[in-house]
């Protein structure tokens, strides 16, 4: 029934919102896309899933581990693909971060195998029923964790010295350097945080489908690109709204049309929207408060 599908779609959208935030943070700090973030999410999710199913760790610990893995992978990606690449050479970081993504996928399949991994149910006995509408415990976890991370990110960016520095570097990296701010360290921090968001998104997505596969990395990147382009590149609020929209569209397509055509329908809809509004649905805010 429709309302249930809408709620499912919005919940799926929250995981898209996290990965879109992750991409947008890097866009803000460097005006570059880190194409390895989809694989970063996948690697974190696989690690989290293994800790949950093999070691029977509590979800909180597996989640923190996924954050740590995401942070580590994104930090390494920064050093390998961005740090030493000249700012004038725009395509190099695209190719090198895509390369990091490929390496991550093969690394995981070689070392851990190409099997799908099961993500066990966490909250089995909690469920909310409002009339015919049903929200299960794991969906609640996804909602609460995603909301919590978004709020924490907002507070971090707006209320702490390092967050202020990230916004300053996004605004004007040259001026930041002239004021003596360690620009490269601030950018590394931005990558690390974006990696944590990607890791969270990966494990939460795994929790919503109760499975993770080592081949979903690039698909995640595509979805995130779809979301951030639709929401307006670098626009955080726009990205969150666009993520919800795409989550709902995907869910409704699977429920009422066909799972096979899910991506096709989303791509076509986004394409049509961009023909009408090439700048995205929500125009980019002039300031960094809107961008980051």
């Amino acid at each position: 029934m429709l309302i249930q599908q809408l709620v499912n779609g919005l919940l799926l959208g929250t995981t898209f919102a996290l990965i879109a935030l992750s991409f947008n943070l890097v866009v803000g700090a460097l005006d570059r896309l880190n194409f390895a973030l989809g694989e970063t999410a996948m690697v974190s999710a696989i690690c989290g899933a293994l800790l949950l199913s093999r070691l029977d760790l509590p979800f909180v610990l597996a989640f923190l581990a996924a954050l740590a893995v995401g942070a580590l992978v994104a930090g390494v990606t920064f050093v390998l693909s961005f740090r030493f690449v000249s700012a004038d050479y725009h395509t190099a970081p695209i190719l090198s971060s895509l390369g990091v993504g490929l390496v991550l996928t093969s690394l995981v399949t070689r070392v851990l195998g190409s099997d799908q991994r099961r993500v066990p149910t966490v909250l089995d006995d909690v469920r909310i029923e409002i009339g015919p509408l049903r929200i299960v415990g794991d969906q609640l976890i996804i909602l609460v964790v995603a909301a919590l991370m978004t709020v924490l990110l907002y507070v971090f960016l707006n209320r702490t010295p390092w967050g202020t520095a990230i916004r300053g570097v996004s605004d004007d990296p040259d001026m930041s350097g002239l004021l003596g701010i360690p620009v490269q360290r601030v950018i590394l921090l931005t990558f690390v945080i974006s990696g944590m968001l990607a890791g969270a998104s990966g494990l939460l997505t795994g929790l919503s489908f109760h499975t993770v596969s080592p081949f979903t990395g690039f698909e995640t990147t595509l979805t995130a690109l779809m979301v951030i382009v639709l929401g307006g590149l670098g626009n955080i609020t726009g990205g969150v709204i666009a993520a919800m929209m795409i989550g709902v569209i995907e869910t409704l397509t699977v429920a009422y049309l066909s799972a096979t055509y899910r991506d096709l329908i989303v791509f076509v809809l986004v394409g049509i929207t961009l023909l009408a509004r090439p700048q995205g649905l929500f125009t980019r805010d002039t300031g960094v408060v809107g961008r980051v």
Binding site: W162, T164, G168, D172, V288, R291
Partner: peptide
């Protein structure tokens, strides 16, 4: 050459960073 999207106070705070010894950005949260 201001940080247009930051508040006036944040602009001033970022200017303090190079400040002798303490520094605006310490690792201590």
């Amino acid at each position: 050459r201001l940080f247009g999207g930051l508040t006036v106070r944040e602009n001033v705070l970022l200017g303090q960073h190079s400040h002798a010894r303490t520094g605006f950005l310490s690792l201590w949260p």
